[in-house]
Computed example of a mutant assay.
Amino acid sequence: MKTNANAIAFIMEGRRQRFRRWILVTGSLAALACMLCCAMLLLGNTIYPVQEVIRALMGEQVKGVSFAVNTIRLPRMLAGLFAGFAFGIAGNTFQTMLRNPLANPNVIGITAGSSAAAVFCIVILHTSNTVVSIASVIAGLATVLFIYVLSRGRSFSIGRLILVGIGIQAMLNAVISYLLLVGDQQDIPAALRWLSGSLNGSQMDDLPYLAITVLIFAPVILMLGKHLSILELGEQSATTLGVNADMTRIALIFSSVCMIALATATTGPIAFVAFLSGPIAKRLVGVGFSNALPAGLVGVNLVLAADLIGQFAFEVRYPVGIITGILGAPYLIYLLIRMNRKGSL
């Protein structure tokens, strides 16, 4: 009995230590995100004092400051905040659910589906941002369904899903290239800036749909965090533990795709944020607790930090997607080499 009590005490102490680590990491990521948000509001061609920025945010008309902060910097910061969180938490959901770090929306073609629909609306139909958002969501869901059907075969295979997704992504990228060739010339620069993933030109009118989507579906993923961790053990184990695998998977995929599609429609496909956020959060948090919320915060920090680097670290200003692409491409190569050595590919 004493041995059993000692074992239980040891297990509980380990759980408390992991929980304290989760709290510390999550709190640190949230604090860093707040600092980056403040930097986005304060920094620009002109660095304004904190007091003047606060006055402008409170609605007071401050000459020069009100326009720069409320019209340019605040929408840019909010777009990076919501899009980064959406990319981060959705990417982690796909990677955890499918038990493969390559199974993220960028690699398996979901983002490309939303991008193709958005580019079609921009350069061919010349529609409003609302229509672009709706088309992106529909195209993202349709792409997921199409990839899932093609990867089923006689039985579901994660490896087959990834390979099919990569093929669909290549096809959709070809469609995007064709649309850029046949589209009106005056729309091409805007489409190319959008495809690179950028916070430039973000406006408050573009944000409500993204914000509402994140505020609705992110809590769904967080509430299903324990079920998501159980799904990582495999479908048979999840069913044995009382988890309705099919319904949970549908809810997670639908929530993730909606956030990814709206984020893509708002900021463009910011490269590798969905790919990097989950692994970084997992390294920081460790095992034992869901890393959905930390992954979303990592996504926020990646987007905001990359945007600040793109604006101020070089003589020429680069869109945020170029900076995240520079960070993510080496990690993808490293991951492929490591998985090949382990025989996972």
Rank of each mutant, 00 (worst) to 15 (best):
S115K: 13
A116Q: 11
A117G: 10
A118F: 12
C121W: 11
C121D: 08
I122Q: 14
V123N: 05
V123Y: 00
I124D: 08
H126A: 11
T130R: 06
T130M: 12
T130Q: 10
V131Q: 13
V132T: 14
I134P: 13
A135V: 11
L141A: 05
T143G: 07
F146T: 10
I147V: 13
S155N: 12
F156C: 11
F156E: 11
S157W: 03
S157E: 04
G159E: 01
R160N: 11
L161H: 08
L161G: 06
L161Q: 09
I162Y: 00
L163T: 07
V164R: 07
G165Q: 05
I166E: 03
Q169F: 00
Q169P: 05
N173R: 11
I176L: 07
S177E: 08
S177P: 04
S177N: 09
Y178R: 08
L180F: 00
L180P: 03
L181Y: 12
L181H: 07
V182K: 10
Q185I: 08
D187I: 00
D187L: 06
I188M: 03
P189A: 03
A190Q: 15
L192Y: 11
L192Q: 15
R193M: 15
L195E: 15
L195Q: 15
L195P: 13
S198K: 00
S198V: 05
